[in-house]
Amino acid sequence: MKVWSPYVVGAGIGILSWFTFATADKPIGITTAFEYSAALTEQAAAPEVTQPYIEAKAKDGKVPKIDWEWMLVLGVFIGAYFSSKMSGDRAPGEQVPGLWGWRFGTSQRKRHAGAFLGGVIMMLGARIAQGCTSGHAISGILQLSLSSWIFAPVMGVAGMAVAFLIYGKEGRNHV
């Protein structure tokens, strides 16, 4: 089956979180993997520039490394690859998603620029808030952390507002 019931998928993710808490002593989270990847590339490219930042981080016990979350992200890629391969639910080489194409045309460059800009803004927000859709909106929310119960609704409302600004009501007929 290409698509499972969202309730089955959600329950599966919930159960998975029991195991990550109980065996690895970690909540599911992704942001740190990108943080460390950025720090490691920066360290390699311009060590003298990054040294003060790395040292400040080290005081909080956060030394950039290929860590648990990094391996988790690697797994996410593998799992999605096998899932899509097994059910033939693949978008091989897709560059311009349907809704985007409807609004902005089929230019690949435009979509690439949009995705890049969106990524920059998104990660800036994630780092400021100290978490993303996984760390806050799933793991933090399920731990009833106030931080996440502030982050997730604010994120949702901002996302909806901008989505409607970009696509308008008409966009709803193209998803």
Partner: peptide, 20 residues
């Protein structure tokens, strides 16, 4: 969390895919 959430949401509408 308010500022980060707002910034994240704006980026979300553009990229669609989140870090996870």
């Amino acid at each position: 969390q308010i500022i980060g959430g707002t910034v994240f949401g704006i980026g979300f509408a553009l990229i669609a895919y989140c870090p996870g």
